[in-house]
Write a protein that binds this DNA or RNA. Structure first.
Lengths: 117, 117
DNA sequence: CGGCATCCTTCTGGATACTG
DNA sequence: CAGTATCCAGAAGGATGCCG
């Protein structure tokens, strides 16, 4: 990046990063998105078992927030008993690159921790 | 970090994403990293003004956590009064791609919110 | 199955003041 | 300048039970 940009400051980018994290906040949101992302379509109970340690209360709450932010879509299927399917919206899919990068980094990070011991 | 093992599906990736977020948790951590990242070297008070809304208490606390996780390095400069410089470690620099992606996404996201109104 | 309601504990984080 | 210390409100989040 050119030097004159440095002179002006990077506050815009830093705020943008913060904006992004605002939508992706919470202990579980990124994991939930990655579950839905990797499987394309995913049910409530599936996500519950994908995301290690999450409670149904938290899953419910965070799914709702993601839906409000239009990152995921909720579909109730007419089965007995009811099943509910979640999938990424087109907008939500724009997060895929970030998810993949985070997964790559997380794998390397875990390896580094192991090597460190 | 949990020491679970998995073999099927995408659980490995989902856990990796969660591992990554474990290190990057907290309201401010990503913004702090991006501040240091964009400027290469950055002092305490600089970051304080870069990251909109953060308190000195939180900055201090999260910087310490990032240092423990070896993502940033803290250097005390022998000036009067004391100044402290933070920079990314080589390991911390491996987050640059993610930071840039998040910044890009955050800018688009903010634009979408504006368009939506 | 996919939640919601309630209770309760822990953690987060802001405000303010102080230190070397 | 670069933090610490303390106080304290409110949010996060776990456990459990209930419901259509």
């Amino acid at each position: 990046m050119a030097d004159y940009v440095c002179a002006v400051g990077h506050k815009k980018e830093i705020m943008a990063v913060h904006d992004a994290m605002d939508v992706l906040n919470g202990k579980w949101k990124i994991s939930i998105i990655s579950s839905i992302c990797y499987y394309n379509k995913r049910r409530f109970s599936d996500i519950l078992s994908d995301v290690n340690g999450i409670s149904n209360k938290m899953l419910s709450k965070e799914l709702k927030e993601l839906e409000v932010n239009k990152l995921i879509k909720r579909t109730v299927l007419d089965t007995q008993p009811v099943t509910v399917q979640y999938n990424l919206t087109e907008y939500g899919k724009t997060l895929q690159t970030i998810i993949n990068n985070l997964a790559d980094w997380g794998i390397k990070h875990r390896q580094m921790i192991i090597d460190d011991m």
